[in-house]
Design a protein around this nucleic acid. Structure first.
Lengths: 145, 145
DNA sequence: TTCAAAAATGCAAGTAATATGAATCAATAA
DNA sequence: TTATTGATTCATATTACTTGCATTTTTGAA
């Protein structure tokens, strides 16, 4: 009962990009170094985010990535739904549960899950950015140490 | 983002027991056969449920297991909290996230998780039992086929 | 007292999902 | 044409989950 690290990283990448000046392009390399994770790994997350239209990427020299949408248009729920492979709380079919048809439990759990997502869906990336704390400064602190 | 099968099985076991006459003792063997899962596996789930006081077990010949509490006293939330190893939506410390301290995301996700549990907590095992559909009959159907 | 049934426990291993990285390809601007 | 950067593919590591086997302990019944 935990989000995958992919989802976690996706949020971190988005927050990172959101903390940058809008016109600045970041690179996968740069993010990977700051997060201390391999380039290819971050790339996978970036790929998904890009193919979903959340971030924009451009190749070539002086290429890079940036948010494609305004911060307040990137809903947290959509990020979770994009990144998580499974979002159903139980799998009644493996192994098949004979109570299945009239199962109230399934309904309850699904509704609870729906409420989870509904709540998260009230927020956007804009709600995560805390202007008074620059992430860039935090990251540069790390480099110094 | 899914409950473990342990939790799933725990619910199935509890529903099974709840469908039995109160004075009847079921055995792990019997449940394992009906669910088509190994005895030892069901045993582990039963162990946890027993040590938490949800079901009562007695050894020896003519021993077995049964609910220890009335159906309406067994809260679904407590079952989840008992069975799930991790109930925090994200792990900000692995790898450590530098945004950590002022992270609004963490707060949002935790609150969403809280709402999930709060909702599930409104129901008890009694809400899952559907008297008009006997589980026992469903199970015997399976045996026939 | 002995025996059989049942839970309790510990050990080991299989399996699937997740997480990670290396290497290579393709595009683009200087 | 070359350096930079995203895109893609492949392989592997790791972890959590799942399962089964073997043995022990308890308890009621013969």
């Amino acid at each position: 009962m935990r989000l995958t690290k992919h989802t976690d990283y996706a949020f971190r990448v988005l927050i990172y990009l959101a903390s940058m000046p809008e016109d600045r392009l970041s690179t996968v390399q740069e993010i990977a170094e700051n997060f201390d994770v391999s380039r290819s790994h971050i790339m996978k997350i970036v790929q998904k985010l890009a193919s979903a239209g959340l971030i924009h990427s451009s190749r070539g020299q002086h290429g890079g990535i940036r948010l494609q949408q305004p911060k307040n248009a990137i809903n947290l729920r959509s990020v979770i739904e994009l990144m998580e492979a499974t979002l159903t709380p139980v799998n009644c079919d493996d192994p098949v549960c004979l109570i299945n048809k009239n199962c109230t439990l399934k309904k309850i759990l699904h509704e609870a899950q729906r409420q989870f997502l509904e709540y998260v869906g009230r927020y956007t990336l804009a709600d995560l950015a805390e202007p008074e704390v620059s992430i860039i400064s935090l990251l540069s602190q790390r480099k110094r140490s």
